[in-house]
Simulated assay, not measured.
Amino acid sequence: MSLETVRWAVNLPLPGLSLREHRRIVTALPDLGYRDVWTGEGGGLDAFTPLAAAAAWQPRLGLGTGVVPVLTRGPGVLAQTAVALADLAGADGVGGEGRVMLGIGTSVPTHVSALNGVPFDRPVARLRDTLRFLTRALRGEPVDTEYETFAVRGFQIPATGVKVVLGALRPRMVRLALEEGDGFVTNLLTAADLSRVLAEAGPVQEGKEVVAKVFVCPTRDLAYARRAGRAFLGWILNQPPYRAFHDWLGRGDVLARSRELFDAGDRRAAGLALPDDLVDALWLSGPAPELRERIAEFAREGVTSVLIYVAPTPELLSGRDSLASVLSELRPAPRTSLT
């Protein structure tokens, strides 16, 4: 892949805007050089409503979820929602292949249990079973099967071109995503970490998706950026999947003090204990034009999409910086300006 062939994507919702105010920016995204919009799901908005709105506002955009938890929706509801989104986006059948990507994942106990009252029970097995169900169901095959973690009886929906990708960090999950699914979404890693993940996974077959999510804080106020980065990273890096991931990356010792403080109930101190260089590597900050080259490092061999999450900044929230201009400046490849 290269800057010319990688798909550039933006994560919704965008900073400083209510969902109903997204239309002007979403409509302009293709002219700013972005081909897709993605959502996640934890706190805040659900994953599918912003994508349905985007499909109605701008039919030129691809749509993706990165990711929705498999434990908070039944497998049939996930499939039905994907079919509805594909229909709305005009992505039904073979002609719409890849127009909609349904990203699913285990999520973390806080989002599954604390927010939804659902036990965080056998998440990896549930993810594997959901992947196997969805890949059959979204091809239009009838499903009447007992899986290890659930059973589906008498289910069939129309065939769609929806791809199913996994939220994946370590090699075992990445290999499952590439062998049985349509690819994977990964995040909270450096460009060098991404190379290691891809090397462990082996060659990526043609047609498989590799989506790298990059967190950026485009501000000239670097003290603000670090505070915001620590607040986010001090929580997320201490969730079980990310602890295991960064242990695998060899950062267990570096993160030991943060983990100790987090486990003692002091989330703020856990963020403050993170080394500056790690915060700066996982939470890219600086003026938007200066971030372009760092974002471009993620467009490496095997990567099909780079997904940019834009954090709120004082400039964006005050209106001193135009969100459209910032998005244009962040995208590494040639682009046109919003008029």
Rank of each mutant, 00 (worst) to 15 (best):
L51Q: 00
T219F: 01
A199H: 14
V214H: 04
L316E: 09
Y34C: 12
E41N: 05
A228G: 13
L12E: 05
V165M: 13
R60W: 04
P15F: 02
R220E: 15
E329V: 15
R170T: 11
S325P: 00
F155W: 08
V254S: 13
R139F: 13
A82P: 03
V197M: 07
Y309S: 15
Y242I: 04
R128Q: 02
R128I: 13
D31M: 14
E329T: 07
L29S: 09
F48A: 03
A199K: 13
Q239T: 13
L178F: 03
E146F: 05
R268A: 15
A191Q: 07
K163F: 10
V162Q: 02
Y34W: 04
Y224N: 03
P314K: 06
P275T: 14
P75R: 06
P203I: 09
G105H: 02
F262N: 07
V94I: 09
Y242G: 03
R220V: 12
L102I: 06
S258I: 10
V165S: 12
G103Q: 01
R172D: 15
V303N: 05
G271R: 02
F120M: 01
P275A: 11
E209W: 09
E41R: 03
G207L: 13
P75S: 08
L188A: 03
G76K: 07
E200N: 14
V303G: 03
I236V: 15
R259G: 12
L88G: 06
N238Y: 05
G302T: 05
A281K: 04
V118C: 11
L51S: 09
P69W: 00
P218R: 01
E4C: 03
L88P: 11
V214P: 00
G40H: 07
L233Y: 06
A311S: 13
E180R: 11
A201S: 08
D129G: 11
F184V: 08
V174H: 00
A324C: 10
R172Y: 14
L19K: 01
T65N: 03
R335E: 04
E329P: 10
L284Y: 00
R175L: 02
V216N: 01
T149W: 07
P203V: 12
D263Y: 06
G271V: 06
R335N: 14
G161M: 06
A137V: 06
P203T: 11
A86E: 00
L138W: 00
A54N: 05
G319P: 11
E41P: 03
Q205I: 12
R35F: 07
R257E: 10
L166W: 10
V197R: 05
Q156N: 12
L317H: 03
M173A: 15
A53N: 12
E329I: 10
P314S: 04
W38R: 09
G42R: 03
A84Q: 02
P275L: 15
L237Y: 08
G42W: 00
P13L: 07
S322H: 10
V124N: 11
G90R: 05
D144Q: 09
L316N: 04
L45D: 07
P75Q: 11
G117D: 08
G95I: 02
A270P: 01
G16T: 07
T339M: 12
L12V: 09
R73A: 08
